[in-house]
Structures are given as structure tokens and as C-alpha cells.
Design a protein around this nucleic acid. Structure first.
Lengths: 347, 347
DNA sequence: ATGAAAGCGCTAACAT
DNA sequence: ATGTTAGCGCTTTCAT
């Protein structure tokens, strides 16, 4: 080696073969130890582990996968349409839940943004035997367009499908109806009677379900359920809907928004009209968006266990891959977070 | 096959071998076509492609990786400390930028949440030859603790290192100093003279740099630069700092926050003290957090090209892996977004 | 309980 | 320009 030739640091990763040699056993035995087979003497196991430690051995995923015909890879598919509104922290939390959960398993997470144009490529990739299963976060949409893949590959969705009867996919979700109902009951318990709602798009399960929950609570309390406007889950749409509602009935004394973004958009409208929150009008949202605590007054909302949803999806998929029997639907609990926007009795 | 035994659908993925057979050529030739080698007759290429199409062939990553000794996998490391504050949409956007960019390459994205406890496991994994390179998003921290890995594996960081002189890593970032300077100059251009700032932690590059930018602008304009308080990038810390500043000098007529979260936290404080934005006090933040448009008045801020930062990181890494020469630092442009919170001249 | 040996599906010299 | 032939590092029967 001359002075001019910088030493080529070839980080030649140690192979199972080398470990076997070091430990004085066969490759098969090392493999057994690595994979936690019980059929190995404690003594031998110890020797092998020592060798592994000494050589700093890490199994080569590709080789393992090729030989075992398992990839140990789980795809996390984020439809692009969804990801463009990646600004929604709900997603980030779900993804985080997935990633953290998988960290403690042998699975590796493969994040995939599936654009319309590449959806075919995505399907091929998924069916090409490159992953053991897939997770689809379709958020509010309920779009289970990957459903048919479910017959060839284990798949778990986030959110219930749009048309349950035509769908036999697995999914993890919250009970939007019950959650909306409880938020509305909370407003009712404040003594409010003119309670409105801004629902989400009626072609998305959460849009439908949260409206239904509101209606159930109103009906049960014997209140009229006609103060409804449809929004698009965005702040601007919330502002618009709020304006329309107040035009219809200026005496509204409480309102439930299908998500926090719309509630936030409505805040300035309320202020412009000289209505104070919560004295004149109590407000509740949905999602427990972090921005709810930045608003003034802070926003009462329904908390969704977002990262737990992610973890739940991952857990379900892992069991599915292991061919365990699991429920088609996994429902996670929500909780009402009461903040300043609903903290005063009717004046 | 009896009626009781459901047909076992074995989605036996077609192999290169099968394609070769179908096309009547050797496996090597198919491999050449698949990998875009020029040394194949157009005719043969066509035949092979037809066979691929017909059989719906998708290369097996594991086999390919094993044989080529390339993994075509890029790890995206999100330190847990960071991800817990995953509520910051900045991240989601960066990650999205990375994912979308890689979608058009042959690389696959491996998302890794590296907790303190598993950082050793993470290191081993990275060095075990399971990825071709890694991306580290350390956001505001500037923590380049994976720097040493950079000698064994191509790595690109998000954000400049804390101690540039001790660091020889590659990174992608924005010019925080210049951006903060321009935001401050904007406030100065409004005719304001008592301009304060709430800086970020001084052990994080953005904390240091944004304060420096503010100071440079103040000094250049001949204004005193003593109205400084340090916050922690959270809404609560912004509120606290705002209070301290107003206690020190109630005549403050403009303020620059090192991020939008802190500015949002300060809004209620200002309102409580009877100061109106922007008439009494003009406000500017940093990050272009979506919440800035939900605030009332909407918040003037510095926009960072978050998803472009992600794409830039991915692009740099891909070039690094290809052993191309690249600059250690890639600096992306920011832009000032003027909104209502700074839209009035001094009254 | 351990070892021997045959691949897993592909790439990359090397031949031709 | 195309084919032949070794492996890549590991798992997994099948023996022993």
C-alpha cells in the first residue's frame, strides 16, 4: 500500500459464515440462534452470540428475504391527494404511530406516496412480492380503492370504507358517530338549545358519521336538528358555513364543527359579528388539532388517538400477515377535551 | 382438489427465468433489458418487453440487491425527540418532499424513528449493509450525532450542524440569518422603531441564526437591539417571552418571533394587554406554519420551502451515493409572506 | 441438537 | 450482441 493510495475502507459486513467459523459451528446453527430457534443448546447459543457480538454481525436483509421468501417489509401507502394536505397533523401522528410500533418488530417500514399516475406502478410493486403487507392511510376519504389488492396481499386501512356492504377489507377507526354525539351532548348540557353544526363532505365517512352523531344527540334531547351546513374540512369552508348559519339564524348559541380546522376558520367570523365565545356561542370541534390550543379561546374538541390508530393498524397487519384471525374492524376510543370555548353556562 | 379445500391462491410472482423462457433468450439478456443496458438489439428488447408485459413481471428486490450488492434503499431517520413534536407540519412536508422525490427514482424509502434507546440498533442496521444511504431530519436541533457514520455511509442532514468547524457532513438548509434579516427589515420599513424579538434556544442553529439576522437588520438601521427574549419554540414560551418584553418596555411597536408557534402563543397576551395587531404592534413569525392563516389577524411570516428541502436532501443523497462530487452545503431560498399582522403603517 | 447441501432470483464477469 | 456460469448471504429440508 503506497502513500498515494488512500486505504480503501471496505466495510465488509461480517457474514453468517464468518460467525459460524468464529463460533466453530455450522451456518445452520448460527441461523437458528439468530432466528431464536429453541432447538439449540444454551451453551452453543452463548458461544454463537459471543461471536456475533465480537464480529458485530448484522444479518443481511436481502439474503434473508431471498431465502425465506418473506420480505419483512411493510408498505405504508399515502395517497398523494391526501399527502398534499399533509399539513394535517393527524397524519403525521398516525404515521409516527406506525413507525414506532414497527420499530419493535422485525418489520421495516416502506413509505410510499402513491400519486394518481403512479398508482399502477404502486400496485405492481406491491404485488411483485416486495412487501409482506400494506397499510393505507386514506384519512377522511374512506377510499378503499386498494381493496381488491387485499385478496392477494394483507392490507389494513385507516378509516372505515365508504361502502361497508361492498367491502371486506380490514380497517382501524374511531366511532365517529358516538364521538360526535358526546360532543353535542356536552353542548346541550350547557343549557344551549339553538345548536348548529358544520358537517364534513357527505361522501366521506367522517362527514356522514359526525353529522349523524350530532343529529342523534339533538333528537334525543328533543331539539330541532335543522341548523346544518356542509363544509369541506378547510378553515375557509368553515368560515363560509358559519356565515350562512348566522344568516339563517342569528340566535345560534352553540355549534359543533366536524373538524377543528373549520372551527378555527369560523372564529374570526364570530368575532366580526360581535359574538363572543363561549358566552354568546359555545364551540366544539373534532380532531384535537394542535392549533386548538393556540386559538383564543382555546377550542373544545374530540381527541382521536392518532398515533394509537397508527399502532393499531400496524398491529393488525402484523397479525394478518401471521395468518391470525382478526376482526375486520378495530375501533379505538375517543375522548372529549373540554376547553375554554365551551366553558361557560348560557348567560 | 376437493370442495373442502379452498384453492390455495399462490401468487407465484414470475421470475426473470420465466421471462427469459417466454422470450426465448437467456436470463442475462432479460436482465440487460430490465436494467436498460444499451447492448441489446431493439428487436430483442421488444420481444423481452412483451414477455415482461405478458407475464406481469416485477423484479425481486431481494435477489437483485443480493446479487448487485446495492440495496436501493434509503433510510430516513427521524430522531424520536423530534418526532414527538411531530405536530410540527414542517416535518411532514420535508418527509413528503423526500418521498415524492424518491418515487421517481429506483430507491425505496425506509422510515426509521430512532429513539434514544434504539439508536445503537439503528446504527447497526445502517452499517449492516441494509441501506445505500441515509437522510437525517434533525429539524431545529442541528444535532449531527450521526456524523461519524458519514464516513462509512453516505448521509445528508437537514439543517446545518451546530459546530460547523468540527463537522464535515453534508446538509441542506435555508439561510436563516438572511431570512430573519429580511423579515426585520420589513418591520422597519413600516416605520416601526421599537422592534423586539423572541429568539429560539441558543443551542440550536436556527435559534442563533434568526437572532443574528434580526440583530444585523436592527444595527444596520441604527436601532437599538436590546429587546431580546429567548423562547423555546413552543406557544407557551412565546406567550411568556411576550409578557416579559412588554414588562420591560410597553412601547414596543413591532416584534419578530423565531417561529410561528411562539407568535401564535403571544397573540392572546397582546390582546389581553389591549394592544391591537398590527396597529399598535406589528408581528412577524417564521416557518409559514399553516396555523398562521387561521390566526386573526393572519400572521406575516418567513416561508421555508419545506418539501423542496426534503427533495433537495434526497437529491443530494442520491448523487452522493453515485459518488458524484457535491457541495457540503445546499442552501435553499426563503420568502417573506406578508399578511395582516404587519399590514398597517405606524398609526 | 447439529450439520450438509440445495436453492431463493438475480447480476456480473467472462466467453463467444 | 448474447449466452454461460458463478456466486450474493441466508434459510430450510433432510440426514445424522
Amino acid at each position: 500500500m503506497s502513500i498515494d493510495t488512500p486505504e480503501q475502507i471496505v466495510p465488509q459486513a461480517p457474514t453468517l459464515e464468518m460467525v459460524a467459523h468464529e463460533a466453530g459451528v455450522s451456518r445452520a446453527t448460527v441461523s437458528r440462534v439468530v432466528n431464536g430457534s429453541t432447538a439449540v443448546t444454551p451453551q452453543v447459543t452463548a458461544v454463537v452470540n459471543a461471536a456475533i457480538e465480537k464480529l458485530n454481525y448484522v444479518p443481511n436483509r436481502a439474503a434473508r428475504s431471498l431465502a425465506s421468501r418473506r420480505t419483512n417489509v411493510i408498505a405504508l401507502i399515502v395517497p398523494e391527494q391526501t399527502s398534499i394536505v399533509f399539513s394535517d397533523p393527524f397524519f403525521a401522528a398516525v404515521i409516527q404511530g406506525v413507525a414506532v410500533y414497527l420499530n419493535d418488530t422485525d418489520y421495516t417500514l416502506n413509505l410510499l406516496i402513491a400519486s394518481e399516475t403512479s398508482s399502477d406502478k404502486t400496485r405492481r410493486y406491491l404485488l411483485g412480492g416486495n412487501v409482506d403487507g400494506a397499510l393505507v392511510v386514506s384519512h377522511h376519504s374512506g377510499d378503499h380503492s386498494y381493496t381488491r389488492l387485499g385478496q392477494k396481499l394483507p392490507i389494513v386501512f385507516g378509516g372505515r370504507p365508504l361502502t361497508p356492504e361492498l367491502d371486506d377489507s380490514y380497517f382501524v377507526d374511531v366511532d365517529n358517530v358516538a364521538a360526535a354525539r358526546s360532543a353535542t351532548e356536552h353542548l346541550i348540557s350547557l343549557g344551549r338549545t339553538r345548536i348548529a353544526t358544520v358537517a364534513g363532505p357527505q361522501d366521506m365517512p367522517p362527514g356522514v358519521d359526525r353529522l349523524r352523531g350530532w343529529r342523534e344527540a339533538m333528537d334525543a334531547a328533543g331539539l330541532t336538528d335543522d341548523l346544518v351546513e356542509i363544509g369541506g374540512f378547510s378553515p375557509a369552508s368553515g368560515a363560509d358555513a358559519m356565515g350562512r348559519l348566522l344568516d339563517r339564524d342569528p340566535s345560534i348559541d352553540a355549534i359543533f364543527f366536524a373538524n377543528d380546522q373549520m372551527a378555527a376558520g369560523a372564529y374570526p367570523v364570530l368575532r366580526e359579528r360581535g359574538l363572543s365565545i363561549p358566552q354568546d356561542i359555545a364551540v366544539a370541534g373534532f380532531d384535537d388539532d394542535p392549533l386548538g390550543t393556540a386559538l383564543s379561546p382555546t377550542l373544545t374538541t374530540v381527541h382521536q388517538p392518532s398515533s394509537e390508530l397508527g399502532a393499531g393498524m400496524a398491529a393488525a397487519l402484523v397479525r394478518l400477515i401471521a395468518k391470525e384471525e382478526i376482526e375486520r374492524a378495530t375501533i379505538m376510543p375517543t375522548s372529549l377535551v373540554v376547553r375554554e370555548s365551551s366553558k361557560a353556562p348560557l348567560r
